[in-house]
Design a protein around this nucleic acid. Structure first.
Length: 446
RNA sequence: GGCGGCAUAGCCAAACGGUAAGGCGGCGGUCUGCAAAACCGCUAUUUAUCGGUUCGACUCCGGUUGCCGCCUCCA
């Protein structure tokens, strides 16, 4: 049994799939107008965790994650860089996929792009016009928000409150300030596609409706993304999709809270972001994954440099325990079940980690068997998406280091500590650490 | 202004009505020629604050204070 918080109902619910043992998930991917940052990665690591938990529970997961590769800002920024908008977006798509692979995020079934689904988008807009949910004005097409009775059901907003809000921009073409563009007429020099309404491009929200329904069906199980998308993006997706099909869109909505930096949301527009690929030069993908897992995805996460180092130390300790003690295949079923139980309960990664560390302490204290505990934790770490293979050491270089260490042992035996310390210091410069103990000398690459 | 969320030790953080997990850091110890690492022990009589419900509240209800998100492009 898997249960989690559903934004649509505002409650934690037991998951019931549309098709037994299958789960369809649409993850709102990036709008590729800038580099993927730590905040984006939080959302995608969350989605990866969710997927892994479903798969462990025996579900066949069909996950779709889009790239929105056409929008106003992409056009604007690509011009600043004097680049074709396609080339411009491609850089960020590539950067995202590279970081995602490094993070050991399982690849989605497909990464659809908005610009490759223009036909589907046009068909959807036509349906909305036919059904009276959209209107054409001077080459633009707008969605008639007031006609959709359930408008606001995801975000908990009321149409009256939205109208009284002072921040809605006035566009004289719209019948109603809450109406939003499904299709935008191209201005001079902008990219365009031919449509029944003239040359233009899709509005922001329609691509996700078109792509999710194409690959997952008119009704699918889970739609995921950041809380900043709840309104208007996801609200509008529901309005468009349900008006067009007359069926429920996604049954469950999962939203992750924001990553903050200095008390503010990390975001492209605030230009206070840290690019994932830069961070991955400083900390390991495992450490970054653990950093995200330490906080429940429904809580805000405040970034500071120290917390990544903390996560790094923490992961190293876990890994060392597992690598040094694992042996055979026996696992502690009760401990393992406890870990899975907490993952199945709203994907509670912080609590799961807490139990894992407690188990390490118990094993060190002799309350639990070290080997079996290590084997159990290893299995859990794999489900959680961590990669445990040690550093890639070449066999020969290992032997060389062993030899140098052996020589130093000789020096120590001869009480030539000055020389022994010199060897230790020199090795340290190569990031090779010497660990003396009564069982002999060990070393490791830092 | 409207809607929603959050407040737990030095820092991060769990807890879903049954009496405060865990991590990092710090301190003390074991080990070591010294050191590092590892390991052990200690580090919240109390959950922003004031009331209420209950045999019992971090958990539920109301007020106050502070912070954040959305209402405009956003994961």
């Amino acid at each position: 049994m898997i249960e989690f918080f559903n934004t649509l109902t505002g409650k934690k619910e037991v998951f019931k799939p549309i098709k037994e043992n299958n789960v369809s998930i649409y993850v709102c991917g990036m709008t590729v107008q800038n580099r993927p940052h730590l905040g984006h990665m939080r959302a995608y690591v969350m989605a990866d965790l969710i997927r892994r938990v479903f798969e462990y529970n025996g579900y066949t997961v069909k996950m779709i994650q889009n790239f929105t590769d056409i929008d106003d800002k992409i056009i604007e920024r690509s011009r600043e860089f004097d680049m074709d908008y396609r080339v411009f977006g491609e850089r960020y798509i590539k950067e995202y996929i590279e970081s995602s692979l490094k993070m050991n995020i399982l690849e989605p079934y497909y990464y659809p792009r908005a610009t490759q689904h223009i036909d589907e988008i046009i068909n959807l807009v036509e349906t909305l016009i036919e059904k009276g949910y959209a209107y054409v004005i001077d080459g633009d097409v707008y969605y008639k928000t007031a006609k959709f009775k359930d408008y606001g059901k995801l975000s908990g907003k009321k149409i009256e409150d939205l109208i009284s809000g002072a921040r809605i921009e006035i566009n004289p073409k719209k019948h109603d300030p809450l109406d939003f563009a499904l299709w935008k007429k191209a201005k001079e020099g902008e990219p365009y596609w031919y449509s029944p309404w003239g040359k233009g491009r899709p509005g922001w929200h329609i691509e996700c409706s078109a792509m999710s329904m194409k690959y997952l069906g008119e009704t699918f199980d889970i739609h995921a993304g950041g809380t900043d998308l709840i309104f208007p993006h996801h609200e509008n997706e529901i309005a468009q999709s349900e008006a067009a099909t007359g069926k429920p869109f996604a049954n469950y909505w999962i939203h992750n809270e924001m990553l903050r930096i200095k008390g503010e949301k990390m975001s492209k527009s605030l230009s206070n972001f840290l690019a994932v690929s830069d961070i991955l030069k400083k900390v390991s993908p495992n450490a970054l994954r653990l950093y995200y897992y330490r906080t429940h995805f429904r809580s805000p996460l405040e970034y500071d440099d120290g917390s990544l180092k903390e996560a790094s130390s923490s992961f190293e300790r876990m890994k060392r325990f597992v690598m040094e003690n694992q042996s055979g295949a026996d696992i502690d079923g009760d401990l393992f079940d406890e870990l899975i139980k907490n993952l199945n309960n709203n994907f509670n990664s912080p609590k799961t980690l807490g139990i894992m560390f407690s188990a390490i302490k118990d094993a060190n204290n002799g309350i639990r068997d070290k080997q079996i505990t290590a084997n159990t934790l290893r299995k859990a770490l794999e489900i959680l998406g961590f990669v445990l293979e040690g550093e890639k050491k070449e066999e020969i270089s290992d032997k060389v280091i062993d030899t140098v260490v052996g020589i130093r042992d000789k020096m120590r035996a001869e009480k030539l500590f000055e020389y022994a310390d010199f060897v230790r210091d020199e090795l340290k410069k190569l990031n090779i650490e010497i660990l003396d103990s009564k069982d002999g000398t060990k070393w490791r690459i830092k």
